[in-house]
Design a protein around this nucleic acid. Structure first.
Length: 338
DNA sequence: GATCCACAGGAAGGGTTGGGGG
DNA sequence: CCCCCAACCCTTCCTGTGGATC
């Protein structure tokens, strides 16, 4: 049934980017002066997960690298949130040797010297940067064009310090909204055409998958793959309605599991507490946490964890200051660890 | 409306870790 | 093998603010 498993992985780039023409045109026009060797400030790309931000950014980088004399690079700031970590990725991308324990000002100099022609860098998950010095540094380099990618526009800008903020004012904003169902169907069709035996899955099934995915392309592709694998394991020749409905939870759980695996012990305990107790305030969470852990971390650390988990969409919260309440975003129990 | 409380989140300092050089 | 240094994560301290209470 599946002829090319690779195209059913959510991190495989699509044959062609569908339904992002507006954003692509906009970004191309922003980057266009690079073709004539002129300086370009950059852009701020924002929207929910699974809306095609990273995918589109990668596409633009490839396109640029082919058409103009520019160096391009994409850095995921989620695992590279510190100044040094980003510098390290930058240097590696520039073909330089990164020497551990180099003082930060030397790293800065090394990067300045290594950038000897126009350089376009995508900082994916830019809202995860713990230190904004790198934004400052890259911005003031006339050779560098930054494409910043994050989930929420206002949240990102409000966390910038004044100096950086005022410099990014003239960055162009490019919004990616959730995909509509018909757009998700088009994305799935693209995958099916290049990786699935013709006739194995009908348009009606693809539409059901799109509806269940709730605007998230990554989820949609996950459901598609699960449905095909399940049907084919049963020896069926086509995917039926029941199979789609049946695999939705496991496809979602699969994505959740990936996220779970990145959590620390403290984060797992916090999540468990929220699943079991429902909506909680910080004081209650901390009390429950202290009962379960021998060497509890401080309150400040816990709020940091919760914030981070909220970014993963594992935890939700609402309210300001003393009115704040946290809850688990799903009711999926943390898988037992041996 | 004054006061207190609970909390968020910034800033600064310390402990720990790990690589490099003597 | 030991010391130094940088990084990084955590803690402590602090300020600001919304909500509750009287």
């Amino acid at each position: 049934m599946i002829t090319n498993p690779r195209v059913l992985e959510d991190d495989t780039p699509p044959q062609e980017i569908v339904h992002r023409e507006g954003q692509i045109t906009h970004l191309e026009s922003v980057l266009e002066p690079l073709q004539r060797g002129q300086r370009v400030n950059g852009a701020f790309i924002y929207g929910p997960t699974g809306a095609g931000k990273t995918c589109t950014a990668e596409f633009l980088l490839d396109e640029l690298a082919e058409s103009a004399d520019v160096e391009t690079h994409l850095i995921d700031c989620w695992p590279n949130s510190t100044f040094t970590a980003v510098c390290r990725r930058l240097l590696e991308g520039l073909g330089e040797v990164y020497q551990p324990n180099t003082p930060t000002d030397e790293l800065t100099m090394q990067i300045r010297e290594a950038i000897d022609k126009p350089y376009v860098v995508v900082l994916d998950e830019a809202d995860q940067l713990a230190d904004q010095t790198i934004l400052h540094e890259l911005h003031q380099n006339p050779q560098v064009t930054m494409l910043l990618v994050a989930n929420r526009h206002d949240e990102f800008y409000s966390h910038l310090d004044q100096g950086v903020h005022s410099r990014l004012v003239n960055y162009r904003d490019v919004e990616f909204r959730r995909y509509r169902d018909d757009e998700l169907v088009a994305i799935l069709v693209d995958r099916v055409e290049s990786g699935v035996r013709p006739g194995a899955i009908s348009d009606a099934r693809l539409r059901e998958i799109a509806e269940a995915a709730d605007g998230d392309a990554r989820v949609a592709i996950g459901i598609l793959r699960n449905a095909l694998e399940t049907a084919s394991a049963r020896g069926a020749s086509t995917v039926d309605h029941g199979t789609v409905l049946e695999v939705v939870p496991s496809a979602r759980r699969e994505i959740l599991q990936k996220t779970f695996s990145k959590l620390t012990r403290d984060q797992r305990v916090l999540y468990q507490i929220l699943v079991e107790a429902g909506e909680q305030r910080m004081g209650e969470i901390q009390a429950a946490y202290r009962e379960r852990v021998d060497d509890p971390s401080a309150r400040r650390t816990l709020t940091r964890h919760l914030k981070k988990m909220a970014h993963y969409d594992l935890v939700g919260f609402d309210g300001e200051n003393s009115a704040r309440r946290y809850w688990a975003a799903t009711d999926e129990l943390y898988p037992e660890t041996a």
